[in-house]
Amino acid sequence: MDSDEAEAALGGARNGHSQVAADGGFWVRYQDIGVTGIYGPGMILAGVAIDAMEGPLVRLQEVELIARVPSQASAEIQHLARREDAAVRVNWSGDPEIAAWGVSMGTALEYGISSTGHPERKDRMITSALFVSAELADSPYETEPVRQWCDVRERAKNSGSWPVKTDQERSHWDWSPQKAVGPLRFGMTPQQVADALGGEAPSGRQGHFPYWWWRRGAAGQWTLTHDRFERTGVTAHYWYPAGLPELGAVKVHGRTGPQITYAGIPLIGATPSRLDEAMLQHIEDHDLGLLFTPSGSPIPPGLQFDINATRAGDTAISEVTFASADWEL
Rank of each mutant, 00 (worst) to 15 (best):
R82Q: 13
S74C: 09
T232Q: 05
R216V: 13
A67W: 02
F131I: 13
N158H: 13
T189D: 10
V234K: 03
Q61R: 13
H208R: 15
Q72M: 11
Q304T: 07
E62G: 13
W175K: 02
A278T: 00
I113H: 03
W222L: 01
G102K: 01
G55T: 05
L244S: 15
A201H: 06
W27P: 00
D167T: 09
G47Y: 05
L184T: 02
D85Q: 15
E7G: 14
L275C: 01
S74M: 12
I307K: 01
S133F: 03
G187S: 05
R274Q: 15
A52S: 15
G12Q: 04
T321N: 04
R83C: 06
I126E: 00
Y240G: 03
A9N: 04
A134L: 09
E328M: 14
P70I: 06
W212S: 15
P163Y: 06
R185V: 12
T223N: 15
S114Y: 07
L57G: 15
Q148Y: 14
Q281D: 12
I33W: 02
V250A: 07
T166W: 06
A67Q: 05
G16D: 05
G233Q: 05
A87R: 15
R155Y: 15
A129L: 07
I260L: 12
R205N: 06
V69P: 01
R153C: 08
A86K: 12
E200N: 09
S324N: 10
D195G: 04
G269L: 04
G217A: 13
G264T: 06
P298D: 05
W327M: 06
Q178A: 13
A249Q: 00
K251C: 08
L136D: 00
R89W: 08
T256H: 11
L280I: 05
E154H: 10
Q304N: 14
H226M: 06
A236G: 02
G207N: 03
Q148V: 08
W214M: 15
S161N: 14
L290A: 05
R205W: 03
L291D: 13
A46Y: 04
Q206E: 14
K179T: 10
P294G: 11
A263S: 12
Q281M: 08
I260Y: 02
I268G: 00
Q192L: 09
R228Q: 11
I98H: 00
A73G: 06
S115Y: 07
A9C: 07
A9W: 07
D227V: 06
M188I: 04
P272F: 07
